[in-house]
Design a protein around this nucleic acid. Structure first.
Lengths: 140, 140
DNA sequence: TCTTGACTTGGACAAAGTCCATTGTAGGAT
DNA sequence: ATCCTACAATGGACTTTGTCCAAGTCAAGA
């Protein structure tokens, strides 16, 4: 059983076939998938799983902090199972590929109190953009 | 006439009433509006303006770099007329409101070479998230 | 003022996501 | 082992956000 599923069970969640499949799909991919991509891969293992269940399950996992929701553009959100370790994203501005990266320092610290405007700042998201090696070569 | 409109005219664009109104609405707000919010405000000044025209005009302004498109969540994109000055965004995780902020330091510097994986990193986007004062009050 | 090609319009369409009444079932109780 | 029942899954309607297009309109140069 995947670590993710194990953690869900420890939280008292029912282990249904649907949740198992969604967790396995997420854990099994190196790239960050959209909800519909998760659904497509889940269907290969459990043909009757519904779109609503995939959305529900992803939303629940995000809600308890096991999975991170990433919206890098106006298109579909992507789901990142590496929530256990703080990291940021490096996105290719041409092909959209996402890599996890681990920069130095705490980016939250760079926002001084007088720039917080009364917000209770809880989190910071950092997205680096540039051309990936493949696209740089193709563009040359 | 707003600076934005002036710059559009210099690029050879036809100055229609619709484009004028969209530019005025964008320039006149301190927050970053969604396309539909721009449309709603535009209608107050020019009742027959269509949704398609607002989307077209915003897209054109983004295309030439006069306006920045901000997709901070899976909801509607927001449009930021302050393209001339580098800044980051502070987003309410409940209602989606956006404020411009100006943190200390250069966030690009925090990504060391060995974490760039051959990418030609050109830009970094920083989004702080938290509850805005209004939503914090509503949630209490 | 006339002409013309760029601009606008409204409605159909599409993608992404939410909602809800109904049906099914995991897992504790017996 | 089986029964219960609260929690979960289903699927289809609905909403939001955005795109597309054929037809009509108009800004601005000749």
């Amino acid at each position: 059983m995947s670590d993710l599923l194990e953690r869900l069970r420890e939280r008292g969640w029912r282990l249904t076939a649907q949740r198992r499949v969604v967790a396995e799909v997420l854990d099994g991919e190196h790239v960050h998938l959209t909800a519909d991509e998760v659904h497509a891969r889940a269907i290969e293992r459990l043909p009757e799983i519904s779109r609503a269940t995939v959305y529900n399950t992803l939303g629940e996992m995000v809600g308890i902090g096991e999975v991170i929701e990433v919206a890098t553009d106006g298109r579909a959100k992507r789901y990142d199972p590496n929530a256990h370790r703080p990291h940021q994203h490096l996105v290719c501005s041409r092909c959209g590929t996402i890599r996890d990266v681990h920069p130095h320092g705490d980016p939250l610290a760079s926002l001084p109190a007088e720039e917080r405007f009364g917000f209770a700042v809880a989190d910071v998201e950092v997205t680096y953009r540039g051309l990936c090696p493949d696209c740089a070569r193709a563009a040359a």
